[in-house]
Simulated scan of single mutants.
Amino acid sequence: MTLYSDPRLVDLYDALNPAAADTAFYLHLAQSLDAARVLDIGCGTGLLTCALADRGHDVTGVDPSAAMLAVARSRAGGEQVRWLEGDAHAARSVDADLALMTGHVAQVFVDDTSWRQTLSAAYDALRPGGCLAFESRNPACEPWRAWTPEASRRCIESQKYGRVDVWHRVVDVTGERVRFATHYRFERDDEEIVAESELRFRSQTALESTLREAGFVSMNWYGGWSREPVDAASRELVVVAMRD
């Protein structure tokens, strides 16, 4: 099963991915850049998108999942956002001051062609001097080693579905690519859903190279949500890149 093709998994998304330090980082970034117009690429259920709109930004959210966008549109403040179904190419004409790719969306683009095309589309969607910001997990930390049933298991209580146990299991690691399965065990219905995913773990050097190829001329890198410098122990590679 493809992740978020099942409406039950879409319904659980916000409980598994609540607002956290990354949300605060991107909200502060939009404010500090005085970004009047913001593009949220891979906006999902629109948690950050609507929070940006609530703070007075003119926001466009784009996502390929119709099910995720349905949740986003129904969220409080969803009527303030322009929602587009598709990928970054659907938003080339936005002329944004700031484009965001949050929730490790950057890692979903596992092949180089789709990644370069996405960066190109993001570049085109920005006004001259606009910025693209996103994060990617630092491969130096090998975070997938913690994606075992024992280490990753968590439980959520859903009003709709009752108790749901969730855990990860790595299927394969090949170079920078990691395939893994996420298990969702619905206790009340005695049912288990398994969704397979694949992510690309690019190094800071590789990310910077592709950003420069796309036309981004300057970059600020952080190793976490407190804007600390990147070092060998950094869990995240967070970048704010400016286009020419």
Results as ranks from 00 to 15, higher is better:
2 T>H: 14
6 D>W: 09
7 P>I: 01
17 N>Y: 10
31 Q>D: 10
33 L>M: 04
34 D>L: 04
34 D>I: 02
43 C>L: 05
44 G>M: 05
46 G>I: 03
46 G>N: 09
47 L>M: 08
49 T>A: 03
49 T>V: 04
52 L>C: 14
53 A>C: 03
56 G>D: 10
59 V>S: 06
64 P>G: 06
66 A>I: 12
66 A>S: 15
70 A>H: 13
71 V>S: 14
71 V>W: 03
72 A>W: 11
72 A>S: 11
73 R>A: 08
74 S>L: 14
76 A>S: 13
99 A>H: 04
103 G>E: 07
103 G>A: 09
103 G>L: 12
104 H>G: 02
105 V>Q: 03
105 V>P: 12
107 Q>E: 10
107 Q>F: 02
109 F>C: 05
110 V>S: 06
111 D>N: 05
111 D>Y: 15
111 D>A: 14
111 D>C: 03
112 D>K: 05
121 A>W: 11
122 A>C: 07
123 Y>H: 15
126 L>S: 12
129 G>Q: 12
129 G>R: 12
137 R>F: 05
144 W>S: 01
145 R>L: 11
156 I>N: 01
159 Q>C: 12
162 G>Y: 01
164 V>P: 11
169 R>Q: 15
176 E>T: 11
177 R>E: 07
178 V>K: 00
181 A>M: 01
188 R>W: 00
194 V>H: 00
200 R>P: 00
208 E>K: 03
210 T>K: 13
215 G>N: 08
217 V>L: 05
220 N>W: 10
221 W>N: 07
224 G>R: 06
227 R>S: 07
230 V>K: 01
232 A>Q: 08
239 V>R: 00
241 A>E: 02
